[in-house]
């Protein structure tokens, strides 16, 4: 049974349909990359999965159990959304660290507010991210790549079933990009279940068990990482070749 199963997900803003009939499955320990041009709906899809937006069609299941059914759950309040969000972690394009807290405090804050002391674990996570000597730094004292690695540790600290990345390196220069991709790759090797929205095609080919190509709010193609080398659909080919030209 798939860890995550998305069935016929749809989302509109006003009368503009952003997502249409999105269905896919993700097994435990797999890494899924979602690629596609800007405005193809991939970020909205990720936001629906993390309940920052509520999908208005379709269902989401975790371990075979429906956690969200748009037909009846659209009136979910923040409290209920908070409960189902616990299954997911999200790393943002702009990091969104909390500026008034140190790296370590950023990682422990959410647990501390729930009355749990996870300092040891947080230290371990930051070490794993290569930030052993940066734990007491404030975000503005860190490079973009370091900030993003703190953000990854912060998301990991709550033991999500699935860790999601929304273009995690788009705000970084190539050097910083590679240090962030390195830790994401380590997570993939450790069989962390992940969904990555990315423009780093070479990286997606390297780490992904599954690849989804989106265009105009729809899934155009899905398959394993070889999809990137052998796209079948014309739109996928066009998108990939436009990246090669850069």
């Amino acid at each position: 049974m798939a860890l995550l199963e998305i069935r016929k997900l749809g989302k509109s803003f006003g009368d503009k349909k952003i997502l249409k009939d999105i269905s896919f499955e993700l097994e435990k320990g797999q890494t899924l990359s979602i690629i596609g041009s800007s405005g193809s709906g991939k970020t909205t899809l990720l936001r629906c999965i993390n309940f920052l937006e509520k999908a208005d069609e379709g269902t989401m299941s975790l371990n075979g159990e429906i956690i969200y059914d748009a037909a009846k759950d659209q009136d979910f309040k923040e409290k209920q959304l908070g409960l189902i969000r616990k299954h997911f972690g999200l790393v943002f394009q702009q990091f969104n660290l909390f500026p008034q807290y140190t790296a370590l405090e950023n990682v422990t804050l959410a647990s501390r507010l729930q009355g749990k002391d996870i300092k040891e674990k947080a230290i371990g996570l930051l070490e794993q991210m290569g930030l052993a000597d940066r734990m007491d730094y404030y975000p503005h004292q860190l490079s973009g790549g370091q900030q993003q690695r703190v953000a990854i540790a912060r998301a990991m600290a709550l033991d999500p079933d699935i860790l999601c990345f929304d273009e995690p390196t788009s705000a970084l220069d190539p050097l910083l990009t590679s240090e962030v991709l390195r830790v994401i790759r380590q997570l993939a090797d450790k069989k962390m279940t992940m969904i990555i929205v990315t423009h780093e095609i070479a990286f997606a080919r390297l780490v992904s068990d599954k690849v989804i190509f989106m265009d105009d709010g729809q899934i155009i193609e899905k398959g394993d990482a070889s999809l990137i080398d052998n796209p079948k659909d014309e739109r996928t080919r066009h998108f990939l070749s436009s990246l090669d030209e850069r």
Binding site: R85, L109, Q114
Partner: peptide
């Protein structure tokens, strides 16, 4: 920035 609220939300914090 709205990202501060969203980061709090995905960490399961209440408003």
């Amino acid at each position: 920035p709205v990202g501060q609220y969203e980061a709090g939300r995905v960490l399961g914090l209440s408003d």
